[in-house]
C-alpha cells in the first residue's frame, strides 16, 4: 500500500501495450518508407517536448486518482501571461527571467486553485478542473480578445532552434522536467504518499497521510508543468493564443494510460509515459505521411485507449 509508485507495476502489461504501439509505428514505416529518417526524427523531436510536458501534467493527477482537464488551457494562459509581460516590458536584462517566472507562476496558481478545490472543498477533480478550464480560457480570451499575442523579443523564437551539446534546448528542458518528476514520484517519500492517496484516499487519511496536501501539491505541479509546456509552445509558435493545441487532451490521456498510469490512481511510471508519447508521435507522423485522414487518427487513438483499458481489465 505504501510502496513508491512504479514498484508494483506489472512490467509485462506495459511492455505489451507499448509493443503494440511500436508495431503500429513499424507498420507505418515499412508500408511507406521515408525519404529521410533524420528529418522525421527532427520532426518528432520538435513536437515531443510540449506534448511530453502536458503528458506529465496529466499523469501526476491521474496517479493521485484524479484528472486535470485544464492542462491545455493553463498552458495557453501561462504563455499569454509571459507574452503580455514581454510586450509590456520589452525583453532586456532581467525582464526575460521575470516574464518566464510570471508565466510559470500563473500556471502554478491555476493548478493550485484546482488543487485547493479538490483538496479542501472536496470537489471531484473532473468538476474542479472543468471549472478551472472555463475560468482559465475565459480569462485568457478576455485579456487577449481571442487573438494572438505577438511582438515577442527575437530570442523567444530562437530558443526553439537552440541546441545545447547537440541536443535541442527544448528537449533538454523536457528531459530535466521529466527527471525531476521521476525523482519525486519514484524516489522521494512524496511518491509513497502519492501512491497511497491514489490507491485509497480514505485509508491513507486514516493512516496519517495529509491527503489534502498531496492533492494540492499534485495539481500545483500539474499547473507548473502545463505552464512549462505553454512556454515551449510560445517559443515554437512565436506567439501565444488561447486555443493552441486544444486537441491535445486525448493524446495526453492516451500516452499516460499507455505508459502504465493506472486511471484509477496509485500507479504510474514516469519514464514509461515518456516512451509512450514518443512512440505515439512517431506513429502519428507515420500516419500523416501515409496520407491517413486526421479523423482516422483520432478514431485510432480512441480505439487504442479503449483497447489498452480492456487489456488491463483482462489481465487484472
Amino acid at each position: 500500500m505504501t510502496d513508491a509508485i512504479g514498484s508494483r507495476t506489472d512490467g509485462s502489461r506495459r511492455r505489451f501495450a507499448l509493443a503494440g504501439a511500436a508495431a503500429l509505428a513499424v507498420a507505418a514505416f515499412t508500408a511507406f518508407g521515408f525519404g529521410d529518417a533524420t528529418g522525421l526524427l527532427r520532426s518528432v523531436a520538435h513536437q515531443v517536448p510540449e506534448l511530453g510536458l502536458l503528458v506529465l501534467a496529466m499523469a501526476l493527477p491521474m496517479m493521485a486518482g484524479g484528472i486535470n482537464l485544464a492542462i491545455v488551457a493553463i498552458a495557453n494562459l501561462s504563455a499569454v501571461a509571459t507574452a503580455l509581460a514581454f510586450a509590456r516590458l520589452g525583453g532586456d536584462g532581467l525582464v526575460a527571467p521575470l516574464a518566464l517566472a510570471f508565466g510559470l507562476a500563473v500556471g502554478g496558481g491555476c493548478g493550485a486553485l484546482i488543487g485547493a478545490l479538490v483538496a479542501h472543498a472536496r470537489i471531484d477533480p473532473v468538476v474542479a478542473s472543468l471549472g478551472g478550464l472555463m475560468v482559465a480560457s475565459g480569462v485568457g480570451i478576455l485579456v487577449t480578445n481571442g487573438s494572438a499575442v505577438t511582438g515577442l523579443p527575437d530570442f523567444v523564437a530562437a530558443a526553439a532552434d537552440r541546441t545545447v551539446f547537440g541536443l535541442p534546448l527544448m528537449t533538454l528542458v523536457f528531459l530535466a522536467a521529466t527527471a525531476l518528476v521521476a525523482l519525486l514520484v519514484h524516489r522521494a517519500p512524496f511518491g509513497r504518499r502519492l501512491s497511497a492517496v491514489g490507491h485509497n484516499a480514505q485509508a491513507s487519511l486514516y493512516s496519517g497521510v495529509d491527503v489534502a496536501r498531496v492533492h494540492l501539491t499534485v495539481y500545483t505541479l500539474s499547473g507548473i508543468l502545463s505552464a512549462l509546456a505553454g512556454l515551449v509552445m510560445l517559443s515554437r509558435f512565436n506567439s501565444a493564443r488561447m486555443g493552441y493545441g486544444d486537441s491535445y487532451l486525448l493524446v495526453t490521456l492516451l500516452a499516460a494510460v499507455l505508459g502504465g498510469v493506472d486511471p484509477k490512481g496509485g500507479r504510474g511510471a514516469v519514464w514509461a509515459t515518456v516512451a509512450a508519447i514518443l512512440t505515439l508521435q512517431i506513429s502519428a507522423s507515420g500516419l500523416n505521411l501515409l496520407g491517413a485522414s486526421q479523423h482516422a487518427a483520432s478514431v485510432a487513438w480512441g480505439g487504442i485507449l479503449i483497447a489498452k483499458l480492456a487489456l488491463d481489465r483482462i489481465r487484472a
Partner: peptide, 26 residues
C-alpha cells in the same frame, strides 16, 4: 524497473530502426 525500461526503449527503438533501414521509396 530496469527490465521494464529496457523493454520500453527497445520497443521505441525498433520503431526507429525500422524506418532507418527502409530505403527512401518516395
Amino acid at each position: 524497473m530496469t527490465l521494464r525500461l529496457k523493454s520500453l526503449f527497445a520497443a521505441a527503438g525498433v520503431a526507429g530502426l525500422a524506418f532507418l533501414g527502409v530505403p527512401s521509396a518516395v
